[in-house]
Simulated scan of single mutants.
Amino acid sequence: MSQGKVLIVLSDADSFSVEKADGNIKEEETGFFMTELATPLESILDAGYDVEFASPNGQTPNIDPLSKSLLAYMGNYFTKKKDEQMIEKMRIESNLYAPRPFREVTDAQLDSFSGIFIPGGHAPLTDLGADPDLGRILLHFHKQRKPTAVVCHGPYALLSTQVAPGSTGFAYKGYKITSWSDQEEGLIETMKGGRIEKVESALRDAGADMQTGTAKKMGGITVDREVVSGANPFAVKGLGTQFVQMLNSGVEAKN
């Protein structure tokens, strides 16, 4: 018997922008980061929850190519294989490859979801931070204090609450949140040779109380009210476990 249902938000984007020194914009391939979806998803499913996927326009999501490399798994072939099998299982058994457009997820239907989860990869930078319908969806979970899990670049999606219909501003002002850090993005900028939008700075500028430090980068998570957040792929196991605990409790977790 199902314990409830979780909405998983994905980006439609298969690229993100890198601004070169000469002002030109180069698009780099991206998508969702495989382990950032697969590992928390395993915890959600094992706990007996059903899942449904949604994205801005319902397009088939792309997998970030870097996230499919053994390098991303620190050489752990078996963990990589396990995550690949989870994604394939979802392709067959769920609507992962045909997500519902945000506009089709009505306010009434949102009542049927116990929580919401947004994985990372650079894709959210392209189309999640300024999507009014996603802002509407997130405001539902925020106002109802339903568990909300975000990891890596996923927290960038929280900015969409600023452009939701009837919004009075950033819904998570004052929340303690952890995301992919400016320092970590700086390393990617060096690799790509250009400027990339910064999740940490964008959230801080909007009013979030950003949590950083070595412990967060090495897998520590941050919990504040209904939101659990993590900085990078090292956080995915702990994030999934905490999210399920929050779902099971039916109320917001305490710091």
Rank of each mutant, 00 (worst) to 15 (best):
G194P: 02
E84N: 13
A98G: 12
D50Y: 04
G154K: 00
G154H: 01
G186E: 07
D50E: 12
L239P: 03
L203N: 01
G129S: 13
D107N: 15
A47Y: 09
L66F: 14
R225V: 11
H140L: 12
K68Q: 15
M90D: 05
A123N: 15
S15V: 15
I87D: 03
M246A: 15
D131R: 02
S43A: 11
K192L: 15
E252Q: 12
E185G: 03
M34D: 05
T60F: 02
H122Y: 14
A98C: 12
D64V: 12
A54V: 06
N232G: 07
D127K: 07
E252R: 08
V199C: 04
G240L: 03
A108P: 04
M86Q: 10
T212R: 06
Q59T: 07
Q183N: 10
E84G: 09
Y156W: 11
D46F: 09
N95Y: 08
K173R: 10
V223I: 12
T214W: 05
E93S: 13
R225E: 15
V236T: 14
D22N: 14
P40K: 01
S167E: 04
V150D: 00
L37Q: 01
L125A: 09
A108D: 13
D22R: 13
I8P: 00
N255A: 10
F33K: 00
I87T: 06
L158G: 01
N62P: 06
R225T: 14
F234P: 01
P61V: 08
Y49Q: 13
R225H: 15
K217Q: 11
P124M: 07
M1R: 12
G230V: 00
I177K: 00
F53N: 03
R91I: 08
P165K: 09
I63M: 09
A157Q: 01
M1V: 11
I221N: 05
K176Q: 13
G194V: 05
S201R: 08
T168I: 12
G31Q: 14
G174K: 09
F16V: 13
D111L: 08
I196A: 07
F117H: 00
L158C: 03
K192T: 10
A208W: 00
F141W: 05
K254L: 08
V251G: 07
G154Q: 00
K80R: 15
I196Y: 08
K237A: 04
S181M: 02
A164G: 03
K237Y: 03
G174D: 10
I87A: 09
S201K: 12
T214R: 05
L139N: 14
H140R: 08
I63Y: 07
A171Y: 00
L41E: 01
F53W: 04
M210N: 02
A235R: 03
N62C: 14
P132V: 07
M90R: 09
N24T: 15
Q245C: 06
S17E: 15
C152Q: 05
S11H: 11
S2M: 11
E42N: 08
G154V: 04
P155Q: 03
V223N: 01
K192M: 10
R100G: 02
G166A: 14
D22F: 13
